[in-house]
Nucleic acid binder design. Structure first.
Length: 301
DNA sequence: AAGATTGTTGCTTA
DNA sequence: TTAAGCAACAATCT
């Protein structure tokens, strides 16, 4: 599931690859999906346009277009992928060591899951650039979306997001004020995009394990010390996850079709029934805040 | 074969 | 007015 570190990785990679390239053609592979949001009018906005910058708000990617005063939004939701394929020139590729590339095809080396090849049966949209490179939007479960908006609508959407966890504005004072007069679980707070941007189910569990706080703890029971620690750990875990290019659990791959390397550091997510790395306890799983939640009963209070 | 999977929205209830 | 919780969404896997 792409969360903040995964979306950040895709954003940074794509910035190096598609900025200021001319979009010459859009191919909608999944016409039945009005969800894709790109129809006749959208095609004319995108065609012959250029992406001049890419930003991120929480898990949402924001592509700034040079012309027509529009922004292209892409949300990957659970299974969305953005795969960039350079111009398929076999000679060039060989020289640069793209060993997995098959001449004339688009197969990427050693990638797993549905990211193995593009286009594939889950490809919803293809951007063709003037240098013959392509960007594929794949989405197995069709939860993701692509949308064109004006500046006004974009501002409204961004306003709906809470502070970026890595930003200075996400600090003890802020979190304390958010928790005041609330009685829900800390996990529900971490997952609430209006309060904090970008954290999803995997990192929420990993953060709370590292902070040694049980996910179902009511927030009005948290001490100042615990709140301070949660703020610190949120930044720590996300920073490390970005450094390791995100986590691949099922479908996530980066724009080159490669897995994220933070998976090796997962302490509780997906480890139900296994031994806790921190004590002799066992990792438990139960539904908290409406989501499958992993924690160690002994380490986390 | 029903239930779980998850990011987000929208609805209902308190 | 706002918070909290849950269903719904899609498609696949167990």
């Amino acid at each position: 599931m792409p969360e903040l570190p995964e979306v950040e990785t895709i954003k940074n990679d794509l910035k190096r690859k598609i900025l200021n390239k001319k979009i010459v053609r859009i191919v909608l592979k999944d016409k039945k999906q009005a969800r894709a949001g790109i129809t006749g009018a959208g095609f004319s906005v995108l065609k012959n346009n250029y992406i001049t910058n890419i930003n991120r708000a929480g898990k949402l990617l924001i592509f700034k277009l040079r012309n027509k005063n529009k922004y292209l939004l892409i949300h990957l939701k659970m299974t969305g992928q953005l795969i960039y394929i350079p111009h398929p020139n076999p000679l060039l590729r060989k020289e640069r060591g793209y060993k997995g590339m098959i001449a004339g095809g688009h197969k990427l080396s050693d990638s797993t899951g549905v990211g193995g090849e593009s286009p594939n049966k889950y490809t919803r949209l293809i951007f063709n650039f003037s240098d013959k490179s392509k960007l594929f939007f794949n989405d197995l479960r069709k939860f993701g979306y692509v949308k064109l908006v004006g500046l006004k609508e974009l501002d409204k959407i961004i306003e709906g997001y809470g502070p970026e966890p890595m930003d200075k504005s996400f600090n003890f004072i802020y979190l304390k004020s958010v928790l005041k007069n609330r009685r829900t679980s800390i996990k529900a707070i971490l997952l609430n995009q209006k309060l904090i941007s970008g954290i999803g189910n995997i990192y929420a569990d990993e953060i709370l394990f590292r902070a040694r706080v049980k996910p179902d703890r009511r927030v009005n029971s948290l001490s100042d010390k615990e709140i301070t620690n949660i703020v610190k750990v949120v930044k720590l875990i996300l920073e490390k996850a970005i450094k390791y290019r995100g986590t691949t659990f099922s479908d996530y791959v980066d724009s080159r079709g490669k897995r994220g390397n933070f998976s090796q550091f997962l302490q509780v997510y997906g480890r139900t029934g296994e031994k806790c790395f921190g004590c002799q306890g066992v990792v438990k799983k139960e539904k908290i805040a409406g989501r499958g939640t992993h924690y160690c009963e002994r380490c986390q209070k």
